[in-house]
Amino acid sequence: MDSWRKNPLIFWVFAVPPAAWLLLFFLTPLALIWVFSFGEKSGLIDIHITWTADNYMRALDPLYLQIFLKSFWFAGVTTAVCLIVGFVVAIAITFAPGRQRPILLLLVMLPFWTNLLIRTYALIAILRTKGSVNAALEHFWDWGNGLLALLGVEHLQLLGAQFEPLHLLYNNFAVVVGLVYVHLPFMVLPLYAALDRMDRSYIEASLDLGAGQLRTFRSVVIPMAAPAIVSGVIITFVPALGSFLTPDLLGGTDSQMIANVIERQFKSANDWPFGAALSFILMYVTFFAIALRSVWSARRDAREALA
């Protein structure tokens, strides 16, 4: 800090642009939406700020609470699947030969270069009744039947009279698949960063001292990766909670998430104050999660300082 104090000009040159950016493009719009959430509609385009709590009261209606719960469920399942899959992927990359690691990391990030909408439409093409998955299954079904014909038992119709495609799209399963697909890199990257930095000698020591692979993983790897797990969980859970495109395009008749309701308030329902209140409830939840994380890491630091 001393060197900054000696060169105040350099400090300001580096500090002002990002601070101005943050203020102008993040805090100001956010503050505006926050103020809207205490407003009342008057006519079609005007919003009067009356500091009413009605929008928040309306958001606490069991109808919306139930949708919030469902969104938490979707985001929670997505995060859990991402954590399990992401851990496996991160470990695989960490222990891959040095030359392959950048390529594997690139493969994880590559989908980010394509627009979310395009990726979601690609998933539709893969999952739909006449999509890639069902086409492959039908192929196997044909082979199976050919094999049965060779054995002379095709008349028994062991595989069914005709191929029954799986219904993979337009249900909650498809929504979770879509959310996991989109959010997996958010989990893999922090986990990889932590595992890559980890001192391998701890693992060797644990194995040398007689702990099994599983025990080593549970008692050495996981505790050392814990901060990365928490970060990964938060940055996966938070955007998954606010998804609306995925449930819109992949979901069925009961896949509505809270962000779909919010989106409608800003569009067809034309009720910005209520939409703003719903958004801010989501935001408070996010802040709460981040606050929990810092409390947790402060306690951890304190514990380590004692140890």
Partner: peptide, 18 residues
């Protein structure tokens, strides 16, 4: 009108949430 728009949106939200 705004009242109608709200009624319709709430009905639709209930349909999708049921």
């Amino acid at each position: 009108g705004a009242e109608y728009t709200r009624m319709i949106d709430e009905a639709y939200t209930r349909i999708m949430a049921s």
